[in-house]
Structures are given as structure tokens and as C-alpha cells.
Design a protein around this nucleic acid. Structure first.
Lengths: 218, 218, 218, 218
DNA sequence: AATGAATGAGGGTTCATTCAT
DNA sequence: CATGAATGAACCCTCATTCAT
């Protein structure tokens, strides 16, 4: 299966194998991150990971599939962590704060993978694209679910769609500007963004003017 | 015609030339948009624009310089339009609404150029990168100025930096999701985002909890 | 005619034209000298000479013809100067000294042209090659004539052909090593080479061993 | 065969590889020889050698490096052969005869390589140029050493520098004129040139006139 | 008399990929 | 299990040259 390298096999052997692959992922993500998917060559990846060129093909089949595996691994990890963190949190606002914190924490902890996930969203084609899009959709709908909960509790100033996509934009854009020497840690940024977002979409209304009064267009 | 012996407008010639170049820009931006800068070949651009390959080099010198010119032209246009629109608007919140509307309107009107500006922010190197970064900085500081005005009037829930970058993220991310068949027009989306943002950063405070209490760190 | 630009026209107008062309020759020779004929582009020549690219074609027709004209001009000048200098000199050894001095003096005075003449001897093709070869042959036979005179007077240690070609090699190689900061002037080098050559081919015989006893094979 | 499981000679593999490379060298030298370094395209070399274009890059890295390897190989071979031949020869004049013979024999035996070495002396740049220049210098100083020995024994009519460079010119120029149908073999030409040179620089003095009396300026 | 505009052909080089071992 | 060797296709770019003006 195309997802084989990512399946958690309980045996130590496969685990060691996974570990080796994870190292290659890390190197590859760094290269994709720096040069972009199209701009990175398999030789770049080979050099960075210390594996032979043919070895990469032996393990991953193609450059595209390597990107796919990185993106899938990254995305599944975020989703998995989010699921765990959401357990036991029931307040809608709080759940959204958890969502934002989880996203940004992992973004800053695994900046390369997350940037590749954000920046190379259109690089995959055909089957691989479809498979990844399915997981993306899953994550997206998870977020939408959180927003809907909030909407039921407090109403939403804008459509769920606009709210969700604005939030993703706010968060994902971080790879273009985050500078560890200047910016606070993930928790702090997450709190700020959560404040902006929650207050923005669900706070007391005091809109001073509006070109479009309609809500819930999404 | 360029052979007309009596040209009234001395800039007519350059203007026509500029127009021809602008057409190539449009085609090139579309290709960069679809395939990415690195993934687009000069042959792709040649085919799309109907110009010969060598002709592109005659006009633009290099693939990188073509990207640069597209980005510069796009960015200068947004800045220029913003400056015009801000004239006569003095209310800080209103000025920010104008800023958001201007950005999104131009984004949706010239989606290719703006996506290239957003997505290929790191593609340029050396001198060209520096020159563009200078204009980017100008635009960024223009936004920061608007936020500082707001801050003086009403306070800001977060640092100006986080506020500004969150706003840019919210807006720029639009190229990843906007679908004219589903989404409203620019004015409506701009109003929504402005609502979220203004209410979020400067609205009535009712923060329920906060991991980072510090405000105004920017 | 292909040689038109080099014909000495008594009219001032053509003379001025010749002068302009001579300037271009000088620039072009410098470029050919530095980059080689094949390695120099017409754009290089255009830049160096300050003429437009199309202007070079207007004046010279092709890159090859420009090389041809430079070589022809250079070669004709050496021959012409040699003829003048040989007038009134009758001693065979002295005539050879004049030949060597003339060659080296012009070589160091017009190093670019002479290097191009030496180094790019095979660059021309077809008609232009033939026309230049004819002048080269003329110069070569002029040298051979001088050697034959010497041979009649004092005998020659080797064939005229080997003698002549060795002498040309000795002289033409100078472009690979002459360094004005280290080496003497043309007169001094010419005297040295003449000493070596004359003593070598026509001096007292005291050959200690010989793999080839046959003389006068040329 | 390369599939033999039991290779006796551990260097057999590298040796076969070297042999394959040497064949490519030969073809490439022939092409460089005919068209010049700048005038020869990698596609020309690919065609001539029967290797794929990409294969040439796999082996040699660049056109320049291919030239470098040819020149280095050729030059090292001449030097090596010379060292062997000089063993056991002690008479200064005889040693110079050996030097000339060695140079010309190898020149005519490997005309392509030696012409490329002579004619493309300035084609390399930067590091490769430096590395080759070092070997060239070694060979040059080897010649200078021979001349100095002669000078100590019999004196020299001219500076060592001029003597050495004149001799190199005489010899290297051979690629411009040698015609196997007309000219004698290497031994005969070498003897002639040795006669000219030795008699010229160290023979009985009977200089009849001199523009520059100074000797031993080098 | 002189040139800006334009291009087809080809330059050196790198690409993702395969395959025999 | 892993890789050195090899390549067809494509890369960005420059070439010598033409032609309308």
C-alpha cells in the first residue's frame, strides 16, 4: 500500500525502519522547504539525507510520492494530536483554543513539514492528490465542526466557511513570518490568535458599518 | 501606428510597448500561478504568451526578472490604489476597512498576480529579492501604521506585529480557497474579514481565558 | 569586393570611414584575443566597439568576415612594412634579421591583431579561408626566399621548410609568454631570436650526433 | 568481464573504467582539435564518442573539466616519459636532445592531445586553470633546468628564459604545419630542431651584428 | 546610414528515473 | 537490501543573424 511506511507496526523491526524513514522525511522536508517541491531535485534530497539516489527510489518510488508521504505523515500527526487533546474539553471556545494551539505548536515544532504541507498544497497530482485531499478535508471539517458548535452556542458573526478559512489563513501564514528571535512561543501566539479570532467571530457585536449584512453565506 | 510621423503623445510608443508587456505579464502570471515559479518553464511562458522563447529574453532578460517584474508591478499597483483610496478617510477603523477591501478586491480582480506575489515570495534572489523586499516592507509598514492609529484610539488586544501578520495571513490565504461559484464578492468577504479582525483586535474585551496575558507586546 | 574596407582610398571621406572601421577592428581584435573567435559573441563585439549589433552586420556582413578583415589587414600590414624595410638591405643574414625584427616589432605593437592572426588560423572557412591562405602563403614564401638566399651563401643545416617553420614557431609563440614587465623590447628579443636562428641554421657546424644526417630535404 | 565474481586484479575494474575514459578522451581531443574548445559542443563530443550527452556529464562533470582532464593527462604523460628517458643521460646537450625528441615524438604520436594542450592553454578558468598551470610550470622548469646545465657547461648566447620559450615555440608550433605526407618522422625533425637550437644558443659565437649586446638578461 | 526588435537553432547543464548487479 | 552507472527529455539561456524602419 502506498501508506505502508506510515503505518505503525508494533514490531521493533518495522519501527526501526520507520525511524530511518522518518529521518529521511525530516531531511527531505527541509529541502522541500528551502527550495520548494519543484525546485528541489532528487539529488538535493539524496545529498541532504545521505542516501543514494537510487535508494530514494527504492524506498519511496518517486519524488512525488516522497512529498505525499511527508505531507500525509505531517497531516495525520496533527489530526491525531488534535483528537487526543480535544478529549475531555467540552466548552466550544475552549475547544477552538485547543485547536489553534495544537496547530501552531506543531507548526513551530515541525516547521518544515508544516510549511511543505501549506506551501505545496497543489504539487501532488491524480491519485496522491486525491488521497491527501481526503485527509485535508477531514481536518478542515474537524475545524468546521468546532466552529459549528460555537455557532450554536453564541452565534457567528460570519459564515462558518469564511470563519474557518480566515482562521486557517491566519495560522498557516505563520511560516512566512515567524522568527524565533523576535516572536513569542507557540502558546503565546496561539492565545493571541485565538483572542482575535474568537472575539472577532463570536464577540459582542459592535459593527460600525457593513457592506454585507448577510450572515451564513457559506 | 508607430510609423505615424506626427505623434501627439510622446509616450504613445512606450505606452504601447508597456501594453504589450502587460499582456505578457498576464499570461506569465497565469502560468506561474498554475505551475509555480520553479515548475513553470520559459517554454511554457513562451507558449502561453504567444511570444518566441528568445523574445521573452529580449524583453525580460531572465525568468527571474520576469517574476520580479510581475511581482513589482502587482505590488506597486496595490500600494498605489490603497494610497488613493485612503485619501479623505480619517477614521482608523474605516481606514483599515479600506485597506482590507483594497487588498481583497485587487486580489480577486488580479488573482494570478496576487497569488504569485503571495506564493512566490521567496523565489527571487540577491538584488531582485532586495528590491522587492523593500516594496513589501513599505506595504507592510503602511498596514502597521493603520494599526497603530487604531491602537492609539482604542487599544489593541495583541501586539501590532501579530495583528498585522494575522490580518495578512487571513487575506493572502484567500488564493488557496476562493471559489467564485461558491464565495461572495470581494466587498462581502472584505467586510467579513474586517469585522472579524476589528472586533478581534479592538473590540470589547471579554476574554475568558488566556495563556498569555501580556498585551501590546509589539 | 570583400576587401573594400581595406583599400586605401585617396578621398578623405573613405579615409575617415577607414579610420572608423580601424577602431572597430581594434576593439574586435581585443575581444577575439581575449575570448577566442568562437568564444566571442557578436554582442561582445558590439559592446566593446560601442556599435550596435545590427551596425556590425551593416559594416562587416558576418562575424566570420569581421575576423577575416582583421586578419587580412594585419597580415597585409606586416607584409607591406617588411617590403619597405627590406629595400636597400642586401646581405642575406641581415635581411633575415630585418624579417625577424619586423615580425616581432609588429607583433608587440599590435599584439591583439597578431595573436588573432596566429591563434585563429583555422577559424575561417571556404572562400574567406582561401583568400587569407593566399596572403599567408605569400608571406611564408617571402620568408622562404630569404632563407634560400642564405642557403646559397652559407648553406643551411636543415631543410628550408623546417628552418622557416621553426622560425615562425619561435616568433609566433611569443603571444603565449610575452610579458612587458619582464621581457625586453622587441628589438632585443628579435636580436636574440635572430642570433639563435642564424647561428642555428647557418653557423659553424659542430654537431655532436645526429639521428638524421640528411640535409636539404625541404 | 565485469561480472566475474573472482577478480584477481583488484584494480581491474578501475583499469577498465580508465580505459573507457581514455577512449572518450581520444574522441574528445579529436573534436576539440578540429573545432577548438569553444567551438566544440558537448553534443559534438557525445556524437564522436558514442556516449550519451548526460553520460559525459556523469563522467566528467563539465565541458571544462573534460578539457582539463585531457590536458592534464597529456601533460603528465609527457613529463613522465621525459623523466624516464632522461635517466642515465648526463651530457647536457644530449639531455636537451632527449627533451626535444620526447616532446616531438609524443606530439606526433598524440597530435590531438598535444594540440589541445598547446592551443587551448587559456581556455580553463579558476581552479582548474591553476592546477594545470602548476603542472605546466613544472614541465617548463624541467626544461629550464636542462638549459641551465648547458649554460654552466658551455654558456648561453641568450637568456635562459628566451632560449626556453623559443624552443617551446619552435616545437609547439608543429601542430600548425606538420604534414605526415611531406614531413619526416619525429626523430628527424627533433634532430633538426635540436641542431638549430643547440648550435643557436650554445654554438661557436660569430655574431656579426647585434642590436642588443646584452646577454643573459633572463 | 544605422538600429531596435525579433527569432530559430543550438549552447551547456540538470532532471527524474531506470536497471543490472 | 541498496546502489553505481547511465540516459532521454527538458531545463534556462545565448547564439548569429535578419528585417522593417
Amino acid at each position: 500500500m502506498s501508506s505502508a511506511p506510515l503505518q505503525r507496526d508494533p514490531s521493533a523491526r518495522a519501527s526501526r525502519r520507520d525511524q530511518r524513514l522518518a529521518e529521511i522525511f525530516a531531511h527531505a522536508a527541509a529541502v522541500f522547504c528551502e527550495k520548494g517541491y519543484a525546485g528541489a531535485s532528487m539529488r538535493d534530497l539524496s545529498r541532504a539525507s545521505g542516501k543514494s539516489l537510487a535508494g530514494l527510489y527504492y524506498y519511496f518510488g518517486s519524488k512525488e510520492r516522497l512529498l505525499f508521504l511527508i505531507q500525509k505523515h505531517t497531516l495525520l500527526t496533527v489530526v491525531e494530536r488534535l483528537r487526543l487533546r480535544l478529549e475531555g474539553v467540552s466548552d466550544p471556545q475552549q475547544r477552538i483554543r485547543v485547536f489553534i494551539l495544537n496547530h501552531l505548536e506543531y507548526f513551530l515544532a515541525n516547521q518544515n513539514g508544516m510549511k511543505v504541507l501549506s506551501h505545496e498544497a497543489d504539487a501532488l497530482k491524480n491519485e496522491l492528490a486525491k488521497e491527501l485531499a481526503a485527509i485535508r478535508r477531514e481536518y478542515y471539517h474537524l475545524a468546521v465542526g468546532l466552529l459549528d458548535d460555537l455557532k450554536h452556542e453564541r452565534g457567528l458573526r460570519v459564515s462558518t466557511r469564511i470563519a474557518a478559512l480566515s482562521l486557517f489563513g491566519m495560522m498557516n501564514w505563520i511560516y512566512t513570518w515567524h522568527n524565533p528571535k523576535v516572536d513569542s512561543d507557540a502558546a503565546s501566539i496561539a492565545a493571541d490568535m485565538a483572542d482575535i479570532f474568537l472575539q472577532g467571530v463570536a464577540g459582542t457585536r459592535n459593527r460600525t458599518n457593513s457592506g454585507s449584512g448577510a450572515e451564513n453565506r457559506g
